Deep mutational scan, measured.
Amino acid sequence: MAAGGDHGSPDSYRSPLASRYASPEMCFVFSDRYKFRTWRQLWLWLAEAEQTLGLPITDEQIQEMKSNLENIDFKMAAEEEKRLRHDVMAHVHTFGHCCPKAAGIIHLGATSCYVGDNTDLIILRNALDLLLPKLARVISRLADFAKERASLPTLGFTHFQPAQLTTVGKRCCLWIQDLCMDLQNLKRVRDDLRFRGVKGTTGTQASFLQLFEGDDHKVEQLDKMVTEKAGFKRAFIITGQTYTRKVDIEVLSVLASLGASVHKICTDIRLLANLKEMEEPFEKQQIGSSAMPYKRNPMRSERCCSLARHLMTLVMDPLQTASVQWFERTLDDSANRRICLAEAFLTADTILNTLQNISEGLVVYPKVIERRIRQELPFMATENIIMAMVKAGGSRQDCHEKIRVLSQQAASVVKQEGGDNDLIERIQVDAYFSPIHSQLDHLLDPSSFTGRASQQVQRFLEEEVYPLLKPYESVMKVKAELCL
């Protein structure tokens, strides 16, 4: 049975990233139509530049190519590739079939990587351009969430054990800070992308030097003109047959890092959902379990974690691919890159769409948070109580021993009897502590235990987050809708 299948058929496997999760716009960027249309555009740009620099290419040939950029006979191309065992030459023939007058000058002087690699770089750039505003929107939604809850005390956790208090907004800023680093890295790697350009079979530009009869300047002009037509500021000066596969490492490393950030955020949300302090959106008709109707599973956060793990592992592909590119190139890269580049971007696209949807509907339960604080705060307040007693004339050592005994009794009630923490009640009825009984409410005010959390939130948002989001103001209103 021949390899390949009808990918629109229910009898043929289709990647869930495309069929179930990723956005239509990201799927289109990695589609065959987008790819092969870009090949034709690159052939047109090459012909236009070659004509401008004096090669015998007519206006009629150029116009014929322009008129057929979208006229792609995919069936013919597939048949040609089956016959020739070469995808680029299959599309040269297919393009030439609908451009008979231009057929002889299509791909003039070029090698397969002229269309293959340059198209990949265009796709990487455009895919990054799709991700950047999506990530900015996630940051914006979380920034709104953090600002609104900047002063809401909550129990902090280290080692997932109760620690000092923080605020809900401050905790959210930990998430935002990681995503801001990801946004900066995505922008950097996007701006650092260079075009492969017009380089020939081993990167020496020998074929173009021959076409222009040894004119170095025209060869350099050709490279520059096509690079500018493709919208790049610069091209690699040095290439082998391909652009260095280190570029793929750079791009997928940034995406993998984004995956790590999203995994951490969504894990926190899942843990908070278990504590009943916070939940992701839950639709009115949504079913959490087929057997347990009360369940409210954090399905979206779980999906993000599941896909983020996949995204983090994909960076190993370009690392290994770059390491086995012998001399000017081997074909070890080809099949692998067809999979890992598309999957990385479709996965990143999915987790950003999902995280935006989550961040637009996060639900906080202040009463649950308050109750958990009441359970733990008495123990945390013991040092403040000791200091207040010393100020009232008591002995630190005597007070410490009193607190120690009462704390152990209260802990026994919590752990052995399943009761509430009654340390404060014990202190309130103990005559030894009568000098500070009137101060206990103040000493137990949760806001006095959150330090500068709310001020940190305000400063972080104003100095770091809002300036970073400013270039994306025009796209901030787009909502994230999930079908599944």
Results as ranks from 00 to 15, higher is better:
9 S>D: 10
13 Y>N: 14
15 S>E: 07
21 Y>M: 10
21 Y>D: 05
22 A>V: 11
23 S>T: 11
34 Y>K: 02
36 F>V: 11
37 R>A: 15
40 R>S: 04
45 W>E: 11
45 W>L: 04
50 E>W: 00
55 L>H: 13
57 I>D: 13
60 E>K: 08
61 Q>N: 15
62 I>H: 00
73 D>E: 05
80 E>F: 10
84 L>T: 04
86 H>W: 11
87 D>C: 01
88 V>F: 06
93 H>M: 05
93 H>F: 14
102 A>I: 01
103 A>M: 04
104 G>W: 07
112 S>R: 06
115 V>L: 10
116 G>K: 05
119 T>W: 01
122 I>G: 06
125 R>V: 03
137 R>S: 10
138 V>A: 10
144 D>E: 08
147 K>R: 07
152 L>M: 11
152 L>N: 10
154 T>G: 08
157 F>M: 01
163 A>M: 08
173 C>N: 08
174 L>R: 10
202 T>N: 01
204 T>S: 04
207 S>E: 07
219 V>L: 05
231 G>E: 14
234 R>D: 04
240 G>L: 13
243 Y>N: 15
247 V>G: 04
249 I>C: 15
249 I>F: 13
254 V>T: 11
256 A>C: 04
259 G>R: 14
271 L>S: 12
281 P>S: 12
286 Q>H: 06
299 M>C: 01
302 E>R: 15
309 R>G: 06
311 L>T: 13
313 T>K: 14
317 D>W: 02
318 P>M: 07
323 S>G: 06
327 F>N: 12
328 E>P: 10
329 R>G: 05
332 D>R: 06
335 A>V: 10
336 N>M: 07
342 A>S: 04
346 L>K: 04
347 T>G: 10
359 S>A: 02
359 S>Y: 15
360 E>C: 00
366 P>K: 01
377 L>W: 02
380 M>S: 09
383 E>N: 15
387 M>Q: 15
398 D>S: 11
401 E>R: 05
405 V>E: 00
418 G>H: 14
430 D>A: 12
434 S>Q: 10
435 P>F: 13
435 P>S: 12
441 D>G: 10
448 S>V: 05
452 R>G: 07
457 V>Q: 13
459 R>P: 10
463 E>W: 11
466 Y>C: 02
467 P>L: 10
472 Y>N: 06
473 E>V: 06
480 A>W: 13
484 L>C: 01
